[in-house]
């Protein structure tokens, strides 16, 4: 599954641990939320990430957050918009500065929304070419509300230019 960042395919430096697979002792790994304690118990400060489902209250991550380099949010379906609120809360309420990765089944048409809620990378199973994602990101240059990206204001109201 390709990983998308800023509209480009990038290498994935993280290893995702699924189910009950053993957690590697070294290297950057992403663990399921249920195994966060286990991940945190690893020796040293090897980079750690966590995958959360859409029903997880991100406030629960607060104690672990200083140790986390990545939080993966899940779009169980593109219609389930909870991940937007989770990502935005991670940035706005918890001041998380690491990578927020979208996983699951988001559509390219949601890319701009993801970015404006603080998601930085997308791991996609979609068949579309990267150019479709890139276009979804570029096609609209105006937004009408504040976002965690603090874009450049443009004239009236809360209007701003997104790039």
């Amino acid at each position: 599954m390709p990983l998308l960042e800023n509209g480009h395919i990038v290498d994935d430096a993280w290893v995702t641990v699924t189910g009950d697979d053993p957690i590697p002792a070294t290297g950057a790994v992403i663990v399921p939320f249920a195994r966060l304690e286990e991940g945190l118990a690893r020796a040293g400060d090897t980079p750690l990430g966590v995958t959360i489902g859409p029903d997880v209250d991100v406030a629960l991550l607060r104690p672990a957050l200083p140790r986390l380099g990545l939080v993966a949010v899940t779009f169980t379906s593109f219609r389930d918009g909870r991940a937007f609120t989770q990502a935005r809360a991670l940035r706005e309420h918890l001041s998380f500065t690491g990578e927020i990765r979208a996983t699951g089944k988001p559509l390219p048409d949601q890319y701009e929304f993801m970015l404006r809620c603080g998601i930085t990378t997308v791991q996609t199973e979609r068949p579309e070419a990267v150019s479709v994602w890139q276009q979804a990101h570029e096609i609209i240059s105006v937004a009408y509300q504040p976002s965690i990206l603090h874009e450049r204001a443009q004239g009236l109201g809360f209007r701003r230019f997104v790039s």
Binding site: G81, R88, F113, M114, R116, I140, Y144, Q145, S147, F158
Partner: peptide, 16 residues
Amino acid sequence: EILRQWSTLHPEFSFL
């Protein structure tokens, strides 16, 4: 009108 603008393509609230 302010609410119209604010809600237009709201990044967080388009898949409620």
